[in-house]
């Protein structure tokens, strides 16, 4: 078994994770595009920490990229977290509210 094959198999397995139903669907294309977009988005967001300190941004960048690739596909989890379940939305709202109040109180 050469290394190329294993890499190919890994990639195939990764792609298979996206497929729901009968393989060829436009849902699959949406999921793959969404996955890549999400990866790029969080990489850009991690770069943001350069405003606080540059080394922190570099460490975060590496960690986030590694984690996102390791836990791929994350898009399914993203979708689940953005479900229209009332309790989930309320949970996120409470978290947001706590963060906003904490940040502003801390800053003041």
């Amino acid at each position: 078994m050469t290394s190329t094959e294993t890499f190919y198999e890994k990639l195939k397995k990764w792609l298979d994770n996206f497929i729901t139903g009968s393989g060829y669907t436009n849902i699959t294309t949406g999921y793959i595009t969404g996955e890549l977009q999400f990866l790029v988005f969080i990489i850009i967001l991690s770069v943001f920490f350069r405003l606080f300190s540059v080394p922190l941004a570099i460490i975060l960048l590496i960690f986030i990229t590694a984690f996102a690739l390791y836990f791929a596909p994350v898009i399914k989890d993203v979708e689940k977290e953005n479900m229209n379940d009332l309790n989930r939305v309320l949970y996120w709202m409470v978290i947001y509210f706590a963060i906003i109040i904490a940040i502003t109180l801390w800053g003041g």
């Binding site: 436009n26 849902i27 949406g30 999921y31 595009t33 969404g34 977009q37 999400f38 988005f41 967001l45 898009i75 993203v78 979708e79 953005n82 906003i100 940040i103 502003t104 801390w106 800053g107 003041g108």
Partner: peptide, 27 residues
């Protein structure tokens, strides 16, 4: 107040991202 604009920018960036990603996977 400090951090007010940052909070507003943070909310908008997350909204932009999540909205467009969720739009991608709709059928």
């Amino acid at each position: 107040l400090p951090f007010v604009k940052e909070v507003m920018i943070f909310l908008s960036v997350i909204t932009m991202m999540i909205g467009v990603i969720m739009a991608l996977i709709q059928i």
